[in-house]
């Protein structure tokens, strides 16, 4: 027996021509918070759907809690809890009834059913609203109820697919408090997908996904070591000239990003004062930051994580338009 709670080997999923998940392998240890980070369409949700038996893999193997996701579906389903990207509550029933239905379906013993429902409802602070129809809940309350439902049957693994998508920052923070509290109290393994960087940083380990492949997998700290240097962003009155000057003077790569130039330097705090003093082109603004997972993703894939197809085209148009204006 392996010591891992999730084992994935050479997993591939094709939808016709499209390869949504491309030969990925990884393991997750019990009690770990494991995050899938990547842009929309990277294959995160497809992987989750395979792991929770909703989609069949084209090839490869996946075990959850020691059970095969293709041949032991029922055991896999009993082992996992889920919070989907899209809501999946019965809005016509009240909170209590939604949980009661779940308890029945997951065979939570009658002797502990009431007590367990009360416990999870109190944990996410919806006990007072238990008799209200779910239709009347706010978006954040619905998410919390789904989280409570996912935990009700004491799953070994809790899957959270973009759990805080569309929630305001305050609600997101609260939801994360619940999730971390849960991990502390019950030792549940948490498998989440996200495209929020701050959320991914809460994970013990992260797999960065792009075009169906895992491009890097490690702890957030070590991933950030990939971008070992600090990041300086400047805007000047002539960016083209400034870029040339930086390249020439420091022998480093410069990126044009929107209206600013970014480049990496070691020990940014010490670099900046001399840079500002000696630079010939007029500097309009300058900023310094330490590397984030955003930068790691950029470094690994050459793209920003929030960039999507449409905005890419849009940016290209703006760039072209700007060039024409200059000439």
């Amino acid at each position: 027996m392996s010591d891992y709670i999730i084992t994935v080997e050479n997993l591939t999923k094709r939808f016709g021509e499209l390869v949504a998940v491309d030969n990925i392998s990884f393991q997750v240890a019990p009690g770990e918070i494991f995050g899938f980070l990547g842009p929309n369409g990277a294959g995160k949700t497809t992987t989750i759907n395979i792991l929770c038996t909703l989609t069949k893999p084209s090839s490869g193997k996946a075990l959850v809690n020691g059970f095969d996701v293709v041949h032991q579906q029922s055991q896999v389903r009993q082992s996992i809890g889920l919070v989907f990207q899209d809501p999946s509550l019965d809005e016509r029933l009240n909170g209590l009834q939604n949980l009661y239905f779940h308890a029945l379906v997951y065979n939570v013993p009658a002797s502990v059913r009431r007590q367990r429902i009360e416990q999870v409802l109190k944990m996410i602070e919806l006990w007072d609203k238990r008799n209200s129809v779910v239709q009347t809940y706010s978006g954040g309350m619905k998410r919390r109820l789904e989280l409570a439902r996912g935990l009700l049957h004491n799953p070994k693994v809790l899957f959270l697919d973009e759990p805080t998508l569309g929630l305001d920052p305050q609600t997101r923070n609260r939801l994360w408090e619940y999730i971390l509290e849960l991990r502390r109290r019950e030792g549940t393994t948490i498998f989440l997908t996200t495209h929020y960087m701050d959320e991914a940083e809460k994970a013990n380990r992260i797999a960065i996904m792009d075009y169906g492949k895992i491009v890097a997998m490690d702890t957030p700290e070590r991933l950030k070591d990939i971008v070992s240097k600090d990041i300086v962003s400047v805007t000047t009155d002539d960016n083209d000239k400034a870029a040339e000057e930086i390249r020439h003077r420091y022998q480093i790569e410069v990126r044009h990003d929107h209206n600013e130039l970014t480049f990496e330097v070691a020990k940014g705090e010490e670099f900046l004062p001399t840079f500002i003093k000696e630079f010939k082109t007029t500097i309009l603004s300058v900023s310094l930051r330490h590397p984030s997972l955003d930068d790691v993703f950029l470094k690994l894939t050459g793209r920003e994580i929030r960039e999507e197809g449409v905005s890419d085209v849009f940016k290209a148009m703006i760039r072209q338009h700007g060039r024409r204006m200059r000439h």
């Binding site: 029922s74 389903r77 899209d86 999946s88 509550l89 019965d90 779940h102 379906v105 997951y106 065979n107």
Partner: peptide
Amino acid sequence: EFGFLKEVLVAPIN
């Protein structure tokens, strides 16, 4: 349409 079917389809029932 309202997503509840997913809850049913991933449940450990036939």
